[in-house]
C-alpha cells in the first residue's frame, strides 16, 4: 500500500544511498559497542576489569548487581538513606504524575483552541508560538524560589503541576491531530444530544488515542530518566535516576568499583527499556507537528 518503501534496485546505485546506509550502520555499531562492553563489564570482578578491560569476563559474576541492590541509596535530610525499592517507587510516582499533567494539560488546551472558534483561542495559540520562539534563559533560580513560595517545593504533586505546562511541542502535536479531525463528527454528536464533555471523552479522545499514547510514552521515558528535578525540587523523594546520579558522583560511594557503577547503570536502565519494547509500536507516525506560522 505504501509506496515509500525503498526499491531494492535503488539500493547501492547512488552514492547517497550507500553513504547513508554506511553512516547508519556505523552509528549502530558505535552505539551498541559501548553498550555491550558495559554489559560485559558489569559481570566482571574489579580485578578482572583492571587487567582485561576490553575482553569478555574471565568469569561471569553477579556480585556487582547484588552489591548495587543492597547499597544503591540516596540520603534524605532527617530520614537517612532511601534504598533502591523505595527509589523505584518514588520514580514510578514521579513519572506517572508528571506524565499525566504533561500529557493532559496540553491535551485539553489544544482541544479548546483547535475545535472552538473563539478569538481568545487564537491568543492562546499565539502564546504557544511566542513562548516557543522567545528564548527565556536562566530562570531556574527564580523557579526554585517560586516553587518554595507556593509550597510546591519538595511536594510530588506540586512538582507535577509545575512541570505540566500546556505550552511546548506537545501542544502543537495535539493541535495538529485535532485540526486533522473533520468537524462533522462534533456536529453529529451535538445533534444526538451529547454534551461537550461527552464529545470530548467519548468521541474525540478515542480518535486521537494513538497520539495521546505516543506523547505519554515519550513523557514517561523522559521523566523516568530525569534526575535533576528530583535533585533540585524533591530533596525528600529521591528517584532512582537521582539515586544513580548520587551513587556514581558522590564521594561517599567513591570506594565502589567501576564494575559496580556500570551494574547500577544497567539495573536502572532495564525497566524503562522493557516499557519501551512493549509500547514501541505506538510511536509510529503520530507525532507530526504543523509549522509555526501564525
Amino acid at each position: 500500500m505504501r509506496t515509500n518503501k525503498i526499491q531494492h534496485d535503488q539500493l547501492g546505485k547512488s552514492a547517497f544511498t550507500v553513504a547513508g546506509l554506511v553512516l547508519l550502520f556505523l552509528y549502530t555499531v558505535s552505539f551498541l559497542a559501548p553498550l555491550f562492553w558495559a554489559l560485559f563489564t558489569s559481570f566482571k570482578t574489579e580485578l578482572d576489569f583492571m587487567r582485561n578491560t576490553f575482553g569478555f569476563p574471565s568469569k561471569f559474576i553477579l556480585d556487582n548487581y547484588i552489591y548495587v541492590f543492597d547499597n544503591l541509596a540516596a540520603p534524605v535530610p532527617r530520614v537517612g538513606n532511601i534504598y533502591i525499592v523505595e527509589m523505584f517507587y518514588n520514580s514510578i510516582c514521579y513519572t506517572v504524575l508528571c506524565t499525566l499533567t504533561h500529557t493532559f494539560t496540553p491535551f485539553i488546551c489544544a482541544y479548546a483552541v483547535a475545535k472552538f472558534d473563539f478569538k481568545f483561542g487564537k491568543f492562546i495559540y499565539g502564546i504557544v508560538i511566542v513562548t516557543l520562539i522567545l528564548p527565556i534563559i536562566g530562570n531556574l533560580a527564580s523557579s526554585i524560589q517560586v516553587s518554595k513560595a507556593v509550597g510546591f517545593y519538595d511536594n510530588l504533586f506540586g512538582v507535577a503541576i509545575m512541570k505540566g505546562y500546556f505550552i511546548g511541542t506537545n501542544f502543537l502535536i495535539y493541535y495538529a491531530s485535532f485540526k486533522s479531525l473533520p468537524n462533522d463528527f462534533k456536529e453529529a454528536a451535538e445533534i444526538d444530544g451529547a454534551s461537550q464533555f461527552q464529545i470530548l471523552t467519548r468521541v474525540v479522545t478515542p480518535l486521537v488515542k494513538t497520539t495521546i499514547g505516543a506523547v505519554a510514552l515519550l513523557s514517561f521515558i523522559s521523566y523516568w530518566n530525569d534526575y535533576t528535578t528530583a535533585m533540585i525540587y524533591l530533596p525528600s523523594r529521591p528517584t532512582i535516576a537521582y539515586g544513580l546520579y548520587y551513587f556514581t558522583h558522590s564521594s561517599t560511594n567513591e570506594a565502589s568499583y567501576v564494575t559496580v557503577a556500570i551494574a547500577a547503570c544497567m539495573l536502572v536502565t532495564i525497566p524503562i527499556f522493557i516499557v519501551f519494547l512493549i509500547f514501541k509500536n505506538k510511536l509510529v507516525g503520530n507525532m507530526a507537528v504543523g509549522g509555526i506560522k501564525g
Binding site: Y27, L218, I221, N225, Y245, T248, C265, T269, F276, K280
Partner: peptide
C-alpha cells in the same frame, strides 16, 4: 537503535 539514546537515561 536510533531511539535508544532517548530511552536510556542520558546519565547512563
Amino acid at each position: 537503535v536510533l531511539f535508544l539514546p532517548q530511552i536510556i537515561s542520558a546519565l547512563v
